[in-house]
């Protein structure tokens, strides 16, 4: 897959325009909208770091950790057009010392773990060069 084309797919309400992520929404959650029709839409693949942290200890299941466990960093990223914040890991190798609040990041794909020969892939945030 071409990295430049990597997007998160969300849902957008056909009536009021509110975005949802994850996109598995059946009824619009905007209290002033009673729509139940949505478009699957690509979300902005760039955003601004709202805050960030890391995980120094192995989380419990269903997290699938590498053995030995490798700490990873996490960012909450604000998308301007959608006016929402989405959480995700920062790309492998990026630590909390490499980022600041307000920094621009972009979406990438990364294999989180491999099980029974299958790669389980997730989105990660990569600081923009």
């Amino acid at each position: 897959m071409d990295e430049a084309d990597t997007h998160l797919i969300g849902s957008r309400c056909k009536r009021c325009g509110t975005y949802f992520f994850p996109g598995n929404v059946t009824f619009c959650r905007n209290p002033s909208c009673d729509s139940d029709e949505f478009d699957a839409v690509p979300l902005s693949r760039e955003g601004t770091i709202w805050s960030y942290t890391d995980a120094q200890y192995k989380p419990p299941e269903p997290y699938v950790a590498a053995d030995p466990f490798e700490p990873y960093a996490i960012a909450a990223v604000e998308l301007a057009k959608e006016r929402m914040i989405i959480l995700g890991q920062l790309a492998k190798g990026v630590t909390v010392d490499d980022v600041t609040t307000g920094m621009q990041v972009e979406l990438q794909l990364q294999t989180l773990f491999t099980k029974d020969g299958q790669d389980y892939v997730s989105w990660v945030w990569q600081p923009k060069r």
């Binding site: 509110t18 992520f21 994850p22 905007n30 909208c33 006016r83 929402m84």
Partner: peptide
């Protein structure tokens, strides 16, 4: 939640 509500069509 892994995302906040979208304020695209509402006040935050």
């Amino acid at each position: 939640d892994i995302a906040t509500d979208s304020a695209a069509a509402s006040n935050a």
